[in-house]
Simulated scan of single mutants.
Amino acid sequence: MPGITDLPPSGSGMRIGLFGGSFNPIHAGHVLVMEETMRRLELDALWVLVTPGNPLKNHSELAPLADRVRAARALIDNPRIRVTGFEAQKGFRYTWQTVRFLRHSLADRRFVWIMGADSLADFHRWERWQDIANTLPIAVYARPGSSNRALASRAALALAHGQIDQEDAPVLASLSPPAWVYLHGRQSSLSSSAIRAAKRHKT
């Protein structure tokens, strides 16, 4: 069993999706996005990056990193999807640090950053978001109620020149950034915040 902060194994030329988040807790909606983006982008692997804590969110209800990594590994049964908390070991707080490190330390891999439409809507609030968009291609997956806000967001408008049609999604991993795709598809109404709220209500 790999350690909590171990980087997953990979090989030269692999097309790897990066799906970051608090996963507090992980749920079937997250797994749906992972499976759909892997299929649509024709990825070889997907790495779930369980963050020490989102700088834009309240951490008062944040479960310990090790618990969140183990829960994600227990829920995911696809051997091509690997879960790691390596950002904590590296001391990374921001996504730009993570993508810069992976882009340079594993330069012969083809990474794609994956996010939900709700994240695209707020992407302009991320630290050095332009640097992220200029480092890796990005795949955005539709989320219930977020499409209009996401596609009209500051980041989407600023990056409009780099958007490709979803029918061309398989080539995304090979494109030079800034390049991104908006994927429509099956959606789940589950949310981590709603799950936590329901748990509070029961106690």
Rank of each mutant, 00 (worst) to 15 (best):
64 P>W: 12
19 F>S: 01
201 H>V: 01
191 S>R: 12
134 N>E: 09
194 A>E: 15
43 L>W: 10
130 Q>S: 06
73 R>K: 04
87 E>H: 13
58 N>D: 15
59 H>T: 12
9 P>N: 11
87 E>I: 07
191 S>C: 05
17 G>C: 11
32 L>R: 13
101 F>P: 00
65 L>Q: 05
97 Q>R: 04
137 P>Q: 09
13 G>P: 00
55 P>H: 12
24 N>M: 09
90 K>M: 13
24 N>R: 09
2 P>T: 11
46 L>H: 02
41 L>Y: 10
188 S>T: 05
74 A>H: 08
62 L>M: 15
125 R>E: 12
8 P>Y: 12
78 N>P: 10
153 S>W: 09
27 H>F: 08
1 M>F: 04
25 P>A: 08
60 S>W: 06
5 T>H: 15
169 A>Y: 08
162 G>A: 06
96 W>A: 00
46 L>M: 09
15 R>F: 02
31 V>N: 03
28 A>N: 11
35 E>I: 01
104 H>R: 15
106 L>P: 03
102 L>Q: 11
180 W>H: 04
83 V>L: 07
116 G>S: 13
192 S>D: 07
196 R>G: 01
163 Q>P: 01
65 L>D: 01
151 L>A: 00
172 L>T: 08
116 G>H: 15
11 G>T: 14
201 H>A: 13
173 A>L: 10
83 V>D: 03
40 R>G: 01
30 H>V: 06
41 L>M: 14
200 R>S: 07
135 T>F: 06
54 N>W: 13
12 S>N: 14
98 T>P: 01
98 T>Q: 01
34 M>A: 09
155 A>E: 10
